[in-house]
Write a protein that binds this DNA or RNA. Structure first.
Lengths: 327, 327
DNA sequence: CTGAAAGCGCTTACAG
DNA sequence: CTGAAAGCGCTTACAG
């Protein structure tokens, strides 16, 4: 800006006004044009750092996901990026890998970088991070997960309870009367709700004796999925099974395939989350689709309009049950 | 910092020195401890924006990929994030969606945000962006793609020519004598090299008459893949086919499946890029694995050590041919 | 219609 | 061992 001012023979202030289209009414049109031309000639790009320091606004949204290389979060990241761009914002991202300490570190980095808002997928066991982020004056919204023990959190997530009720209802329509679900063994509330929705709806429709629900640990997922699957399919002789997360589905489906189990003749299967991979599976896979785009848009919209300090509360989005090849 | 200084009864300068562990030798240990304690009590986080303005260093790397929701780039993004974190840096990312204008806009945003380095997957037709980024004083490295018409570019990519030679050699070992490849119809050099490597190696081994190579347009990929596949498989009666990008593979495999084609009995198939999805395919899929982690690490390493203004040149990483279920 | 000045929150060379 | 001062590149209220 100093260079532009010198070359145009005006003050830095004036350059600033012109380049930001402020005070346009009172500025000589010729001078304005001259300044703009020089700026273009010099290939001037605002130093956003300096501007941010003055404005106390960085036009940056911090996004902390569990793992950017997981397609669930990379989809979300893509939608969020597209959406914040519409408002002239950019995304600073980080993966916490479900690690509370790493999450806290990322949070502090985002804070020190003065992000204007945060979108957070908070890991299991990071409750103290919630208190911390609440103590900040940065607007934030929690995505995908729920923490009901904290009041007044702005949250965008799936209606998890209802989503697994839908799964059960579909199984029932298909004539299934012995249902199973494999879920993840952790304390994340949204996953408990999924499990609860399944168990309660299934018990009501076919009786608790005909419902099997098991949980597998994340760190030995492959191995436990195989063992549990064997017990459920060959032991309990169920006619339907729901994989409650996409990772479980990706571990379980190849095993069913290797056992020569036919879907849906031998077993009805419904998975959570949309995956391009289902296209490569030789049997039709129904799945619970989360409206990730709508959820992302809502999260961003809230942050952008939060200056009016509105409250979002917990927004639970309805799931959609998709039948890939119609069953 | 002002608050800390006031509470500690010292100057802001001193607080700065202590918090940054500078001049440690000359500072009273007690004073230092007192300042650090107060900082902790006040939950002080440096304002990186102010620091960056002064230091002319933002500790931010700009990453522009084609599409963050594509697993190829989300893997890269994950690796790059992990790696830059080791140096105390963060990642500002953007997806250009293969659109040169969008790419240029993202580039300018990154510039105005004073990123310390750039990692770029430059789209087809964005050559003028290269001149632009070269005119800047920001170190940058191109990832995945090559632009040989520009000299002195620092590039990290696959040894694409050699990779498809390997594919051909594998087909040949398997006894295949009529080979085909489906590639993408654009001008990206790295993809041409893949195609060229395939054509030349195949012509040498089985004669040009026994080699079919076709290209499909990105925007009507699904449809063209189906048509080309029909012509190749039923018309040309090839015994082996290589899908030159992961998108082509994801479009083609379900079609082969629906036609009841058995792999490798009826047709040998090799795809580009590692995809979790292959696990769900009922036949073994061999694929060309790019060492994305090594490539990401190298790109970051170069940026971090570029202060010594070294030259990287074009680093071509060797591909690995993976047989999922050994064929 | 335009400019001088203060200030955003830091860092650091310099003086004491 | 510590502090006053200048400055990073902008913005904006104020004066003229």
């Amino acid at each position: 800006m100093k260079d532009i001012a010198r070359e145009a023979g005006v003050s830095i202030s004036l350059v600033s006004y012109v380049l930001n289209d402020k005070n346009t009414g009172r500025i000589n049109a010729d001078t304005a044009k001259r300044i703009k031309d020089i700026a273009k000639k010099l290939n001037y790009q605002t130093n956003q750092i300096a501007r941010s320091l003055q404005n106390k606004k960085t036009y940056t949204i911090g996004l902390i996901v569990a793992d950017i290389s997981n397609f669930f979060y990379s989809y979300i990241a893509g939608f969020i990026e597209d959406e914040v761009n519409k408002y002239g914002y950019n995304v600073l991202f980080g993966s916490a890998y479900e690690n509370p300490k790493r999450f806290m570190d990322l949070l502090k980095v985002m804070v020190s970088r003065q992000v204007d808002g945060l979108i957070l997928a908070i890991p299991d066991g990071a409750e103290e991070c919630i208190s911390y982020v609440q103590s900040l004056s940065i607007p934030f919204v929690i995505i995908d997960r729920e923490f009901p023990q904290f009041k007044g959190l702005n949250t965008v997530c799936l209606d998890n309870y209802r989503s697994s009720e839908m799964v059960v209802e579909r199984f029932y329509e298909l004539g299934c009367r012995r249902m199973a679900a494999i879920g993840l063994d952790n304390n994340l509330f949204h996953l408990s709700e999924r499990n609860r929705g399944f168990s309660e709806a299934a018990a009501k429709l076919v009786g608790a004796d005909n419902v099997t629900t098991v949980k597998v640990a994340e760190n030995v997922l492959e191995e436990q999925v195989e063992n549990q699957l064997r017990a459920i399919v060959y032991g309990n002789k169920v006619d339907s099974i729901c994989f409650m997360t996409n990772k479980i589905a990706m571990a379980a489906l190849p095993i069913l395939l290797s056992w020569g189990i036919k879907i849906p003749q031998n077993l009805s299967v419904i998975c959570y989350d949309e995956a391009e991979a289902y296209k490569l599976f030789p049997y039709p896979i129904s799945y619970v689709k989360q409206p990730l785009k709508d959820m992302s848009i809502e999260a961003v919209r809230f942050l952008m309009e939060t200056s009016q300090s509105k409250v979002l509360g917990v927004q639970r989005f309805p799931a959609e049950l998709i039948s890939l090849k119609g069953y």
